[in-house]
Simulated assay, not measured.
Amino acid sequence: MTVSIRPPVAADYAAIAVWIPDAAACARWAGPQLTYPFDPEQLPQLLQVQPGASFALCQGDAGLLGFGQYRLRQPGVAHLCRIIIAPSTRGRGLAKVLCRLLMEEASRTAAAQAATLRVYRDNPAACAVYTELGFVEVEAESTTEVLWMEKQISHAG
């Protein structure tokens, strides 16, 4: 399956809104800045990351497969955030592909040399994805609820 990332469009945000079933899921995905329910038309503004960028994961002209962002925490460090995969396509390795593409984009456009992310400890599928990508826990930044993870970005992603 050949997939790519592109800037999200209005239809992507409408699809994402359907993937978020309740306030708890919204808070875990987007953090406290986004309250549920939300207006999908407002998502581009509500999810804006500066400096950083948002991307839709797509396969050709097919529907949206996923969404993710990175923001620059500091020069050379991209923080991956708001990673979500369409419920109908989960379990196919798309989260790993999306994260690799986000890191490649951050490296290419923002000269990122490292990536960080946060993941809930009770989300073993996501923890496994990030570990497989080479992220390691930063214990000093982690809590009992959330792992802080980081990795160096290689030229190959």
Rank of each mutant, 00 (worst) to 15 (best):
residue 77 V to A: 05
residue 44 P to I: 04
residue 83 I to K: 03
residue 45 Q to A: 14
residue 62 A to N: 15
residue 111 A to L: 10
residue 36 Y to V: 09
residue 70 Y to V: 00
residue 67 F to W: 09
residue 62 A to S: 15
residue 67 F to K: 05
residue 109 T to A: 11
residue 68 G to Y: 01
residue 97 V to A: 14
residue 38 F to S: 10
residue 97 V to D: 01
residue 110 A to W: 11
residue 69 Q to F: 02
residue 66 G to W: 09
residue 65 L to M: 11
residue 36 Y to R: 07
residue 100 R to W: 09
residue 70 Y to W: 06
residue 45 Q to E: 14
residue 62 A to F: 10
residue 55 F to L: 03
residue 100 R to L: 12
residue 91 G to H: 05
residue 99 C to A: 12
residue 59 Q to N: 11
residue 70 Y to I: 03
residue 46 L to D: 15
residue 98 L to N: 04
residue 70 Y to R: 01
residue 43 L to T: 01
residue 90 R to C: 08
residue 36 Y to G: 07
residue 107 S to Q: 15
residue 94 L to T: 02
residue 49 V to T: 11
residue 106 A to E: 05
residue 78 A to N: 04
residue 60 G to M: 08
residue 43 L to C: 08
residue 39 D to Q: 11
residue 43 L to W: 06
residue 95 A to N: 00
residue 61 D to Q: 14
residue 60 G to F: 06
residue 39 D to C: 09
residue 100 R to Q: 14
residue 71 R to P: 01
residue 61 D to N: 14
residue 108 R to G: 02
residue 64 L to V: 05
residue 56 A to Y: 01
residue 91 G to T: 04
residue 45 Q to G: 13
residue 63 G to D: 13
residue 46 L to C: 04
residue 108 R to E: 10
residue 76 G to N: 10
residue 103 M to L: 06
residue 94 L to M: 01
residue 39 D to F: 05
residue 87 P to H: 04
residue 80 L to Q: 03
residue 58 C to F: 03
residue 91 G to P: 03
residue 42 Q to S: 15
residue 60 G to H: 11
residue 50 Q to A: 15
residue 46 L to N: 06
residue 84 I to W: 02
residue 45 Q to S: 14
residue 41 E to P: 08
residue 62 A to M: 11
residue 111 A to T: 13
residue 41 E to N: 14
residue 68 G to D: 02
residue 83 I to A: 03
residue 98 L to P: 06
residue 38 F to D: 10
residue 33 Q to V: 12
residue 71 R to G: 06
residue 111 A to I: 07
residue 56 A to E: 03
residue 74 Q to L: 11
residue 55 F to C: 01
residue 70 Y to E: 00
residue 62 A to Y: 11
residue 37 P to L: 12
residue 79 H to C: 00
residue 106 A to K: 00
residue 79 H to S: 06
residue 64 L to A: 04
residue 63 G to K: 12
residue 48 Q to Y: 07
residue 53 A to C: 07
residue 66 G to T: 12
residue 106 A to R: 02
residue 63 G to S: 09
residue 40 P to F: 10
residue 75 P to N: 00
residue 78 A to R: 08
residue 88 S to P: 00
residue 99 C to Q: 06
residue 54 S to L: 03
residue 60 G to I: 10
residue 52 G to A: 05
residue 33 Q to G: 11
residue 103 M to R: 04
residue 111 A to C: 09
residue 47 L to M: 14
residue 39 D to M: 13
residue 98 L to E: 07
residue 54 S to A: 15
residue 102 L to K: 00
residue 51 P to L: 08
